[in-house]
């Protein structure tokens, strides 16, 4: 179990949080094609490496926040950190 950096509460145990998946690109406007919409809706990033994702501090302050987590090492970085 990881500890995660809640921007409001600080470093807390993973069990307090809910992983709500990788960051999606901005919601497409209504003039995109169907296939662009479907792509946005169904095709996630799935990298072996850092994935930027959203966590919800559901058993805490209720804040949604963004981190980068390595999908193999589970190392965590802030979204503005270099993910090399």
């Amino acid at each position: 179990m990881l500890t995660l950096p809640c921007p409001f509460c600080g470093q807390r145990d993973e069990t307090e949080f809910l992983n709500t998946g990788p960051t999606k690109p901005a919601r497409p406007s209504s003039d995109v094609t169907d296939s662009e919409w479907i792509n946005w809706l169904t095709v996630p990033v799935n990298p072996v490496g850092y994935v930027e994702e959203k966590w919800w501090h559901v058993k805490g302050c209720g804040k949604y926040f963004t981190i980068k987590r390595h999908t193999v090492t589970h190392q965590i970085k802030m979204p503005d950190e270099d993910s090399a």
């Binding site: 809910l18 709500t20 901005a26 919601r27 959203k54 209720g62 804040k63 949604y64």
Partner: peptide, 11 residues
Amino acid sequence: FRHMEYLLQIE
């Protein structure tokens, strides 16, 4: 609730 908070806080 999760859905609404996600929309509000992220989108």
